[in-house]
């Protein structure tokens, strides 16, 4: 095959691209969300005007996702991307963005929302040494467990939707105007219910709860993972167990995608309940949307606190 035969091939390719692209524009805005919680929020704000896809589910460890063909296809057609950022998706999102060749969702475009650049970040390390495990230099990326952050992202999302889809700007403005006060009211309710939790000592599986514990004033006294991202070891668990005698730890918290074995092991030997707390929509049967996710979070923490 020579260049002469390659040229027609390339023109066929380009022709096919134009024909496919010219097919009638999709009426709804396509939103590609890296995590289910931002997908749920996009549905709250975008309502019937958007079609939302979440790249991951609450049962997947978002850090370990692969740049699957189906995700490339979805990102290829997206009008807006919303992701937690701060390197949480570093293993796959950059690869997807390169492969999908979609100018609308590249960093810096209105169609690219990086949550870590909207909310105040906690846990920004003073030095990054991987001897400390999988450290995120931009701060802890699991920002969604504080509902105030959801409110901040909602505001930015509403702005971007208005910008990308100006014809429907009034629609998004209204949706947001309905959502924001309702969400503020819900936060006030959770904070009232959560007040007795202040100072409660907990152990968490992974360093994924700093925003929730900061919000509710919980006291994290240990992690099942000795180093973030490195699976719990028997030796570290034994050390934790030995240290439990002095601390009045009330609950061992893990996310739905984490192995139950380390927390169950510690729970059996210490008598401290091990509980799955919803970190995202879909993580527990009760966490059906953003509201019920926080409802369930508080239900489960309060339940664990009962004598």
């Amino acid at each position: 095959m020579r260049i002469a035969t390659l040229l027609p091939l390339v023109s066929i390719l380009a022709g096919a691209a134009v024909v496919f692209e010219a097919s009638p524009a999709h009426a709804k805005l396509r939103i590609f969300s890296c995590e289910p919680e931002w997908a749920a929020l996009a549905e709250e704000i975008g309502g019937s005007r958007v079609e939302v896809n979440s790249a991951t589910s609450a049962h997947q460890d978002v850090h370990y996702i692969q740049a699957r063909p189906s995700l490339i296809s979805k990102l290829r057609r997206a009008d807006l991307l919303i992701c937690s950022g701060a390197d949480l998706e570093i293993g796959w999102l950059p690869a997807l963005l390169r492969k999908a060749s979609n100018a609308r969702v590249q960093p810096g475009q209105p169609g690219h929302i990086d949550v870590s650049k909207i909310v105040p970040m906690l846990g920004v390390p003073s030095s990054v040494d991987r001897a400390g495990g999988d450290i995120h230099p931009y701060g802890n990326p699991h920002t969604q467990t504080d509902p105030h952050n959801i409110a901040r992202v909602a505001a930015e999302l509403a702005r971007r939707l208005q910008q990308i889809d100006p014809e429907e700007a009034e629609f998004y403005r209204q949706r947001y105007a309905e959502f924001a006060p309702r969400w503020e009211k819900a936060i006030a309710g959770w904070e009232t219910r959560g007040a007795p939790l202040r100072g409660m000592k907990i152990i968490t599986h992974h360093l994924a709860w700093v925003y929730m514990t900061h919000w509710l004033g919980l006291d994290v006294v240990g992690q099942l993972e000795d180093k973030p991202g490195i699976p719990p070891t028997a030796g570290h668990l034994a050390d934790l167990l030995a240290g439990l005698a002095e601390q009045k730890v009330e609950v061992i918290v893990r996310a739905s995608y984490q192995s139950e074995r380390p927390s169950e092991w510690l729970s059996e030997r210490s008598g401290i309940p091990a509980v799955v707390i919803p970190h995202a929509v879909g993580a527990t049967p009760g966490a059906k949307d953003l509201y019920s996710m926080f409802d369930d979070m508080l239900d489960r923490l309060l339940e664990a606190r009962k004598p």
């Binding site: 909310v119 930015e156 509403a158 924001a180």
Partner: peptide
Amino acid sequence: ASGGATANAENEYIAASGL
């Protein structure tokens, strides 16, 4: 510059409602 990150919820609410 921060997309309203430093503002409180009330400010954000106003900012997002206005063009």
